[in-house]
Structures are given as C-alpha cells and as structure tokens.
C-alpha cells in the first residue's frame, strides 16, 4: 500500500483550535509544505502573532516565538539580525499586521529585512469575536460597525500589498487566495517563493492570503468562499505587486 496523503513534517500532529471551514488550516499546511520542500525546518524560527493564529506556535514543528500584538516583524528582525542562518517567518492576521503593527510592518519592509511574512487577510477580527478590521470592506457589517463600515466615519480599508509595493526595501509581495484548488496551488507557489527568497538572501517578502471567517461573517464555509469572491477579491485584486528580482531580469 502506498501513502497518497500525509501531513507535512513541519506541521505538528495536533488538533487545531480553528473554526470549521476556516482557511487558516490550509495556509498553515502550505507554509509547512514549503518548509518541508526547502528542507529548512531545523533552522526555521516562526513568529506567532496575536489574533486567531496566536496558537500557531503549537501547530508548527519548527522553533516558535509568540510575539506581542503587531510586533512580529520587530521580533523577527531581532532573530534574523542576530541569527542570520535562521529562516524566520511571521504569521500575522490583518488586525495585527495592518492596524496595531503597521509601523513594524512598514519599517521592517523598508529596511528590507530578510524575512518572510505570511499575512492572512479576512477583513475582520476573529479572535475577539468579529470587530472591524483595518481591511474590513466599505459597508461591511461587523460587531463594531453594526450599520456597515461608513468610510467617512471609520475610514477606508488598507491595501497592504499596494502600499508596501511602493517601498524600495521590498523584494517581493503577492496577493493570493485559497478559495479553489487552482488558487491554493498558486498560493503554495507564492509562499514557497517567499521562503526561497529569504534563503537566497533577497530580502523582505510578503504573501497576503485573502481568507474567510465563516464564524464571524455569519456564513457557512462554502457561502463564505462565495462572499470572498464577490466582495473581497474586487477590492483586493490578486496578483504579484512587486518582484524586484523578476523586474531586474526583465530590464
């Protein structure tokens, strides 16, 4: 009998706390597959952030550090600068990366820190029970925007890839999603590339994964994927926003 499916080695053999239908599971798996395929688990240090993914320190088999809210890129900087042989990644949600940690995100990016950032954007604060996120869509109903996000009052969503792509320090940023097999494969490729870039010393790489939160969106997992396609992807178009090395090759 041959094995046709197994857990990546870098993924711990434990039950996660994520809600049914949550896309964190897929994204964790993609990160773990990339680590396995690149053979770097032994020298990888992951930085868990604050939010739903906080307990990801229990879900990866590499060494893990749990960071204060929003500070994961600063913690990653501290590890990478002092242990340059380590492969360092952060795993952050939208509140962590694009609200409380905006300064750390922007400055680690502009310094060109040689780290990999996995950014999970599901347009809501999941852990605290469904409040407005920096990436919540205009009109989106959340616990703290009960009448829909009024952009004149609560401001506009942040498009992280677009913003970071203007910074000279950024090597690579791409927005992907995991709503279909095809897109999961693309996301996998992007995440692996973001790790590969670090191994090659190319600098700051970020992959934004447009994701769902069935629980706090109040939808079934399948309907949530539909809502993602209809509402999030038009506001957050998929694609490569910056690929410095590829741009150099073209020139």
């Amino acid at each position: 009998m041959s094995v046709v499916f197994e857990k990546p080695k870098a993924l711990a053999d434990v039950t996660t706390h994520y809600c049914p239908g949550c896309t964190h599971g897929i994204i964790h798996r993609l990160v773990a597959e990339a680590i396995d395929e690149l053979g770097v688990e032994g020298r990888t240090v992951g930085i868990a952030s604050v939010g739903c993914s906080v307990m990801s320190y229990n879900y990866f088999n590499c060494d893990m550090i749990q960071s204060p809210h929003g500070r994961a890129p600063a913690v990653a900087t501290g590890v990478k600068r002092t242990r340059p042989d380590c492969i360092v990644f952060t795993y952050q949600g939208d509140g962590d990366l694009a609200a409380i940690g905006t300064a750390e995100t922007v400055h680690s990016a502009t310094r060109g820190e040689n780290i990999t950032v996995i950014f999970v954007n599901n347009a809501i604060y999941g852990m605290t029970g469904g409040q407005m996120a920096p990436t919540s869509l205009p009109g989106q109903v959340t616990q703290t925007t009960p009448y829909g996000r009024d952009v004149h009052y609560a401001g506009y969503p942040v498009r992280v890839c677009e913003m970071l792509s203007t910074l000279d320090g950024v090597e690579y940023c791409e927005r992907v999603t995991v709503d279909s097999v095809k897109n999961v494969m693309k996301a996998k490729k992007a995440i692996k590339k973001a790790f590969q870039n670090q191994i090659e010393g190319k600098g700051f790489s970020l992959v934004e994964v447009v994701s769902t939160c069935p629980t706090n969106w109040g939808l079934t997992p399948v309907d949530a994927l539909g809502w993602l396609r209809e509402n999030m992807l038009p506001y957050y178009p998929l694609g490569v926003y910056k690929d410095r090395s590829a741009q150099k090759e073209e020139k």
Partner: peptide, 26 residues
C-alpha cells in the same frame, strides 16, 4: 555586531525580545 535604529522604542524592545528568544545577549 548589530546596531539597529528602530522605528520606535516599541519596535526596539521587540527586536531585543526576538534576539533574547533566539538566545542572544541583546
């Protein structure tokens, strides 16, 4: 060695935290 001017005191202490977590005197 490393001298890094952080974007804020908040970032600086968290960089120290990263280094410390990695077992380095910082």
């Amino acid at each position: 060695g490393t001298y890094l001017q952080a974007e804020s005191e908040v970032a600086a202490i968290n960089m120290v935290q990263g280094a410390a977590a990695a077992g380095i005197r910082a």
